[in-house]
Amino acid sequence: MSTGSCWCGNLKYEFEGDSKHVILCHCLTCQKISGTTNTANIPVPRDKLKVTGSPKSHTEKHEDGFDLTKFFCGDCGTTIYKQATADMFAPVSLVQAGTLDGPAKDKVSQPVAELNVRIRQPWLTEVGAAAQKQGFD
């Protein structure tokens, strides 16, 4: 069981499954959500993610046309996970790897894929053996 929380600890979560499957996304929306160059996402089946507390949510249209909702702590603002209406994301919540706690945080592996590398910041190099995808496909 992997666990995590927001910065202030008011939101906590747990999920069954592997916390090692990390996907970096460099899309413009992820840059805005994170306030940096990308997000590190762990896809978790929606029915396996259990959240304690009441996250706030905000939905916007992604630049590729689907709806993206971020779920965050209303007190400290930490984004815990995202959900999207795009077919490839419909069955999962995208847990933000930086919110993992304890031993699970130490088990996060090198990303298996990088998405939207066509708009990756030019000063960032590709991550080792991670699959390099121009978009989401």
Rank of each mutant, 00 (worst) to 15 (best):
C27P: 07
L28A: 15
L28P: 09
T29I: 13
T29Y: 15
C30E: 09
C30Q: 01
C30F: 04
C30M: 02
Q31E: 06
Q31L: 07
K32Q: 06
K32G: 08
K32S: 10
I33F: 05
I33D: 02
I33V: 14
I33N: 07
S34P: 06
S34F: 01
S34V: 01
T36D: 05
T37A: 11
T37H: 09
T37I: 09
N38H: 03
N38T: 04
T39M: 07
T39D: 04
A40P: 02
A40T: 05
A40G: 02
N41I: 00
N41T: 03
N41D: 04
N41F: 00
N41G: 00
I42L: 07
I42G: 04
I42S: 01
P43W: 00
P43I: 02
V44Q: 08
V44T: 09
V44I: 00
V44L: 08
V44S: 04
V44M: 06
P45S: 04
P45T: 06
R46K: 09
R46A: 09
R46L: 03
D47C: 07
D47I: 04
D47N: 12
D47G: 08
K48Y: 12
L49R: 11
K50A: 12
K50S: 07
K50D: 10
K50H: 11
V51L: 10
V51I: 14
T52F: 13
T52P: 14
T52Q: 15
G53D: 11
G53K: 02
G53V: 09
S54K: 14
S54R: 15
S54I: 14
P55M: 13
K56F: 03
K56W: 03
K56A: 15
S57A: 07
S57Y: 04
S57T: 14
S57C: 10
S57G: 04
H58M: 14
H58C: 06
H58Q: 13
H58D: 09
T59A: 11
T59C: 10
E60M: 12
E60L: 14
E60D: 09
K61H: 10
K61W: 03
H62W: 05
H62M: 02
H62F: 01
E63N: 13
D64G: 14
D64E: 15
D64F: 11
D64T: 08
G65K: 05
F66T: 13
D67F: 05
D67C: 04
L68Q: 13
L68R: 08
L68P: 01
T69G: 00
T69D: 00
T69V: 03
T69P: 03
K70T: 10
K70E: 07
K70P: 04
F71G: 05
F72R: 12
C73K: 09
C73G: 06
C73F: 01
C73Y: 06
G74A: 12
D75E: 11
D75Y: 14
D75C: 10
C76G: 03
C76A: 06
G77S: 07
G77K: 03
G77V: 04
T78W: 05
T78L: 13
T79A: 11
T79I: 13
I80V: 12
I80T: 09
I80D: 15
Y81C: 04
Y81H: 13
K82Q: 12
K82G: 05
K82D: 13
K82N: 10
K82W: 15
Q83V: 14
Q83D: 11
A84D: 02
A84M: 01
T85A: 00
T85P: 00
T85F: 01
T85W: 01
T85I: 00
